[in-house]
Amino acid sequence: MCVFRDLEIFRIGYYELKAASIIIENTGGHLKKIFLGSPYELDEYVRNFDDDSLIFIRKVYEKCLSIEYLSLIFPPSKEHFNEFEKLLKICQNLKSLLLAIHINDDVLPEEELLIENEEILKILIRSSPTNLKEIRFICDVEFSLETLEEFLEKWKGRPALSILTSNYIYREKNYKKLINKYKNNGVIKDFICDYFEKVVNMDFKI
């Protein structure tokens, strides 16, 4: 079996979570950047996605205590949320997080999906490391105006946050007004709504 003791930067596709977990298991604990990605949005059924994404999260917080830049993708289940929160508490060097929610089998009603996404923001408020200054949201991650405002209000007192998203709902008038409000009071550093390809490109810097 190959061992990657000096590996610091790791790139692999969304569809290869099982392989990614095996590689992470055999690193020397020096990984600082893990980039999951694809030039296309993830919109297909992925075999064993729920189990593989859960194992991937666990491998990150078990083997990657030095991680600074991280991409995660998982379904909106309680078990995944619990593991995600554990990762945030353990990986204290995390600076930038790309988060994708992917529903593999069924399509959730919009109201239910918004409730699940609200839980993501609650977890980020409760457990984000102090170094976290950039969050990127893609796929099925969308927040109501009220939920986003509550999150930003509770983020006050932390380092200013940069948010990138590929969801164009945030270009609507009410969202732009809210975003500008929290830019003006120093909670938001930047809020960028752009093409999917640019948001998932972790080499793209604000």
Rank of each mutant, 00 (worst) to 15 (best):
E16K: 08
E16N: 14
E16R: 07
E16D: 15
L17G: 02
L17S: 05
L17I: 02
L17Q: 13
K18C: 10
K18I: 03
K18F: 08
A19C: 13
A19H: 13
A20I: 00
A20M: 02
A20G: 10
S21L: 07
S21W: 04
S21F: 05
S21H: 04
I23R: 11
I24W: 09
E25V: 02
N26Q: 13
T27D: 11
T27V: 06
G28F: 10
G28Y: 05
G28C: 06
G29Y: 09
H30D: 12
L31S: 07
K32Q: 15
K32T: 11
K33N: 08
L36A: 03
G37P: 02
G37Y: 00
G37Q: 01
S38Q: 08
Y40H: 14
E41G: 05
E44L: 03
E44I: 04
Y45Q: 06
Y45A: 04
V46N: 00
V46T: 03
F49W: 06
D51C: 02
D52G: 00
S53G: 00
L54V: 01
L54G: 14
L54I: 05
I57F: 03
I57C: 06
I57T: 02
V60D: 06
V60W: 06
Y61H: 15
Y61E: 13
Y61R: 12
E62H: 14
E62G: 10
E62A: 12
K63I: 02
K63Q: 14
C64P: 09
L65G: 07
L65A: 12
S66C: 13
S66P: 04
I67K: 08
I67N: 08
Y69T: 07
S71H: 04
S71K: 05
F74W: 09
